[in-house]
Amino acid sequence: MQKDIDVYQYLRHEKKFPLIWCAGCGNGIVLGSMLRAVDSLKISKDRVAMVSGIGCSGRTSTYVDFNTLHTTHGRALSFATGLKFARPELTTLVVMGDGDGLSIGGNHFIHAARRNIDLTAFIYNNNIYGMTGGQVSPTTPGGKIASTAPMGNIENNFDTIKVAEACGATFVARGTTYDADALDEIIAIGIQHKGFSVIEVLTPCPTIYGRYNRLGSAVDMLKSQLDDTIPLEQAKNMSAEELQGKTLTGIFVNEDKREFCEEYEKLVQRAQKK
């Protein structure tokens, strides 16, 4: 019951609904999780900014009643860096897709993580470029079909978690739309975390990715997340063979490191003492 009550006050439901996404798209489920997390933290809507890039995920910002900025393709993190740096009191959520955040926006992703600026970055990972019709993305697994990989993808794919970890992100987690309850919690922890938080969400794209690769209906794809993923705690007691082909979920990194905006504040104090 409590799941239901608070979401609608965060939506621009009188203006922009229904959502633009296809039937069964997981993006709406992530949005719901995000809103429940914000609600659980009791942050005022005026104090939340959402910055999104281009693509299916980019449309998220249109639907929420925060300070919302829909930017150019892949650049969401750079806009968000400016926004957060200028107003550190704003809780800034950055919504990107896998192509948006890791391909065209890869450089910004790397450096935002390195800088450890207090943003919460969401990567909606549907393994494909949905908005443009199903081209191969940096997270499309090898062998999978896409409109620009009609005979199967011959490239290797990114593991968002490893990329984020290597770049210095101080909170790295992965959730699924199937386990939206766990996702709620991950997001709430991610938002509270001081520093750059990366939350990758596996979200099904039944209309394009699913069809190209014959993965069944929206329901089938959502259910398959349950079979294909294993929570981190559970995986600890499993053998490498058992984990073969499985994707781990949960919180991979959660550490404290100096945060950019706070460090800058100290620098200002040093400069003004002189």
Binding site: A49, V51, L69, T71, T72, R75, L77, S78, F79, A80, T81, G82, L83, K84, F85, A86, R87, L90, N107, H108, I110, H111, Y264
Partner: peptide
């Protein structure tokens, strides 16, 4: 506030973001 960004694309994005928050 001063920040050195990772490239010019980001610099431009960054100042737009900051301008939107009133700078």
């Amino acid at each position: 506030k001063f920040i050195q960004m990772e490239d010019e694309i980001a610099s431009m994005g960054c100042i737009i973001g900051a301008s939107i928050s009133g700078c």
